[in-house]
Design a binder for these strands. Structure first.
Lengths: 213, 213
DNA sequence: TGTACATCAGTGAACGCGCGTTCACTGATGTAC
DNA sequence: TGTACATCAGTGAACGCGCGTTCACTGATGTAC
């Protein structure tokens, strides 16, 4: 055990916070994020309701922390994969694996937005970190010789994001297409819109991916 | 006013049911489906809470009715478009228009599923009516000469849905791809994942569509 | 090593709230003769 | 056209529930001398 420079009390706090989050995820997996209740978590932990207020100021702060963790978790999955030399295809499968691991966590990030809720700024930062990893994977590929599309031209003029990135707009376009296509299959699959159709969604995912690289 | 063969009381009931649903949609647009409350709707209508129980047995039945109406609304939009000779591209734009009209309605159908909730059978029927309209649009096109993909082969063996449809598996594949790609752009756009990136999601949607026809 | 004090985790009572839902009822609307 | 009866929409009181959150408190843990 390395000395992390934290006091025992700080370590204890971090541990309890983590335990609370774990129970929160369980509850979300069972009944959806909108059913998340501090009291219910406390009951599961064998602790009184108000005890949790030592660790999270209120329900909203807990949810925000969960959202942040979910983004962070995907960003780390991506970064780790990229550092091991993952190409676009490997990144795509990492995304799919991450989503299947906990569908409700996926939906907390990419599912129905709650009207009025605004994610904090740092979450936006993590989101663009994720996209950048994918973009980098495309930037490493030889660029396809196709003609410039109207959307490429539009991107050249309007890319506020990835503005400093060296990749040309055509590459940014490819990364965006990839991103949306993967989420198209994933979100429909995880929401159960393919059940009863007989085919294996994994193969559709791969088929989409093959069109993309 | 044509005689619909209904009694005044039946017409009144239908009207009040519709009014309840309208208020429900407003509430969903404002605070999301999970915040839907019969009492709140009643208050908005200037009526006591229990009054609504004359029209819906309980909260779940109201939500189910809303989901059914949402599916029906999209199916009608699609059917009407198809009957006016819409091609794949026109259907896609009809889908987009429908989604933008009321994003929360879109998410009620294609958004985060509530764990444990199972839509009734007739909704599944409407869902496949929608897909069939798209498939028909593809079936009317000259088939592309590309080689058979592994997923085409898989579909040939496992297409439980559209089993009786004359379209070859390659066409079914194209319709499924189209469906997932459009939803990929739409769901990310409506959830706000493109905000701050600067580009116009409508153009990405069209760009995806151009790859598809 | 021992004592005095400060910090802080967790408790239990309490608050007000809005929810879904039931029930016995009133009064208006429609039907049968 | 008028009366007697049945239907049914809506009311108001009431139920139990679980929620988020506050507060004053006890008791354990850590710190300073």
């Amino acid at each position: 055990m390395g000395d992390t420079g934290t006091t025992p009390r700080e370590r204890y706090r971090a541990q309890v916070r983590a335990e609370i989050k774990e129970h929160a995820w369980e509850q979300i997996a069972t009944a959806g994020a909108s059913a998340l209740s501090l009291n219910a978590i406390a009951k599961r932990m064998g602790v009184s309701g108000p005890a949790l207020y030592r660790y999270f100021a209120n329900r909203d702060e807990l949810i925000t922390a969960l959202i942040r963790d979910a983004y962070r978790s995907l960003a780390d999955t991506f970064r780790t994969a990229a550092e091991s030399g993952a190409d676009v295809s490997a990144l795509a499968h990492a995304l799919r694996g991450w989503a299947l691991e906990d569908p409700q966590r996926y939906f907390l990030v990419y599912g129905t937005p709650v009207p009025g809720y605004h994610a904090p700024d740092d979450v936006t930062t993590i989101a663009s970190e994720i996209m950048t990893t994918l973009l980098d994977a495309y930037a490493g590929l030889p660029s396809e010789g196709g003609p410039e599309t109207p959307f490429d031209a539009h991107l050249a003029d309007h890319r506020k994001w990835a503005d400093g990135h060296p990749a040309p707009s055509a590459t940014l376009h490819r990364a965006l297409s990839c991103w949306t296509r993967l989420h198209g299959v994933l979100s429909l699959e995880l929401a159960g819109h393919f059940t009863g159709m007989g085919f294996d969604p994994a193969l559709l995912f791969t088929a989409e991916l093959n069109d993309l690289t």
